[in-house]
Amino acid sequence: MAEAAKMQVSDEVAIQITSMNKWYGQFHVLRDINMTVMKGERIVICGPSGSGKSTLIRCINRLEEHQQGQIVVDGTELTNDLKNIDKVRSEVGMVFQHFNLFPHLTILENLTLAPIWVRKVPKKEAEETAMYFLGKVKIPEQAHKYPGQLSGGQQQRVAIARSLCMKPRIMLFDEPTSALDPEMIKEVLDTMIELAQEGMTMLCVTHEMGFAQAVANRVIFMDQGQIVEQNEPKEFFNNPKSERTKLFLSQILGH
């Protein structure tokens, strides 16, 4: 992976999380999270399983509800107000571990559905946009197939294109490569790197440390629902401060 040019980060705040707490019943999943993401920043979140990293990014588009604290996305605070939630969701794209394409629709219909029904874009224009983004993820020839006919890597690239069709300001990636075969991981990561180089604000939960080193401005390490350490990738990998981080890094980089 080529060392991507670390794009300049603007001083505009994209996401502001202040003393946020979340519980599942009695279980305290996220504990006092404070985090600021600038526009154009690319953040990789890692940590052992059950550390709350997926839950954290799912709070940002309110797939999960938080019970305390404040989350402000692009100037809109997430509360129980459905209008705000829909507004944030249409501005924030999300890519899932299991792709979650709609199996009853063709690839093109998957891509145009939200622009047509949420953004009220005319069908023809939505299809042009969809074909443009399918071209970007390098599978325009699959437009009229169904998701079940594509390989995992292709499906994940379609899922990325589907989010991009909504012209989001922020992209969230929830372990986008962990359900893929090794030879398909690269094609998805290449797409993500390309996206990063275009200056998209990205939050990515992943264990692809090569990806983190190549494009991230910041790596956040979480454990037991807390942010344990965050730093620039070079410092984070070469010179981890906390014992917990050192242990984690030795486990995932050790083999």
């Binding site: 588009n61 797939l63 459905l82 829909d86 507004k87 969701r89 249409s90 924030v92 794209g93 999300m94 899932f96 299991h98 792709f99 979650n100 394409l101 709609f102 559905l113 939200a114 029904w117 949420v118 589907r162 989010s163 909504m166």
Partner: peptide, 14 residues
Amino acid sequence: PRGQYEAADALGLD
């Protein structure tokens, strides 16, 4: 699968 609901939500569909 729950993912279908989540994907629909994440795209901003009401």
